[in-house]
Design a protein around this nucleic acid. Structure first.
Lengths: 157, 157
DNA sequence: ATGGTTGCAAACGCTTTGCATAACG
DNA sequence: CGTTATGCAAAGCGTTTGCAACCAT
């Protein structure tokens, strides 16, 4: 299992628009309604996916732009996106979930001092091995998270 | 990264007694008091480590034996054992922590249907690689958890 | 039209904490 | 004895839910 850092670059506007189109199609296919709130929540996550925002982070980023937005709408949207495979939930040991746009599976390092989340390069073949092995054993794998916890370089001094 | 299941066998009484002795010594060395409750909580976890009990599970197992036991005492004891490196906390995506006696690092599969936790054989060299790599980068690693989530064989039918 | 979605507030579940009492070292 | 741990109840926190109004399709 590799363990170098990954450095996903920020998504550009074209990539974000493509992701939104994909999200809209996926929703329509499943009979899930495409609302203004859902588009804006998804877009805001796409813009900040590198930072792995929490539901509250997204709410704070949006509340001034989306009149009357409720944090429960953010939670509901993220749960739906997760179940559609569009968004990944990163459960952290401090009990506050972080979110990212679903891309290549990888691990995460969460700094408990500054809260930053770093992507770790866990080779996806490792994840495929796990999935394959569990599948052969009759297990149904829904998510697989490598989450490390500690203090990052800046916070360790 | 290997991904077969591990089958840790139940600890026998001698192993449990050794672990308790180790726990008592570690506490004394750190100036942490060895109370009846702490011994019994640790012992109960050792007896059930294969099942990865939650704090509530341990409380239910003990409340009739330990008059007046409070669940907050269970939480406090587990937190102390964790900080001493004697016990490992397994953060699950459903927000309920499970505990085990700290042994060789390995991954976990949590069934969201029956709640059972299965040990996964993630070779400890993989964990060592991660630790080494993060250390070289100036990161301080405190915990490293591979947690898979889904439905186990029995619950998948 | 109608069924899913929203916002609000209240509830939820797990965990932590404040405080007076009790127990270890 | 002094200091730490306990039990109890209450608070904390992130997240979910019930419901009436609302809005995509």
């Amino acid at each position: 299992m590799g363990s170098a850092f990954l450095h996903y670059s920020k998504l550009d506007n074209r990539e974000i628009d493509n992701l939104i189109q994909k999200m809209i199609e996926t929703c329509k296919k499943k009979g899930i309604k495409v609302t203004t709130q859902r588009i804006l929540i998804f877009k805001e996550l796409a813009k900040h996916t590198k930072e792995h925002p929490s539901a509250e982070d997204l709410y704070n980023l949006l509340k001034d732009k989306v009149y009357g937005l409720s944090i429960s709408t953010v939670y509901r949207a993220l749960s739906i996106f997760e179940s559609l495979g569009l968004v990944r939930r990163i459960p952290t040991p401090d009990g506050k979930a972080r979110f990212e746009i679903a891309n290549e599976p990888h691990g995460h390092f969460v700094c408990h001092s500054c809260g930053k989340v770093f992507d770790l390069d866990v080779t996806s073949s490792s994840y495929k091995d796990i999935r394959k092995n569990l599948f052969q054993k009759g297990f149904n794998l829904e998510s697989c998270n490598l989450v490390c916890f500690g203090t990052c370089k800046d916070c360790s001094n």
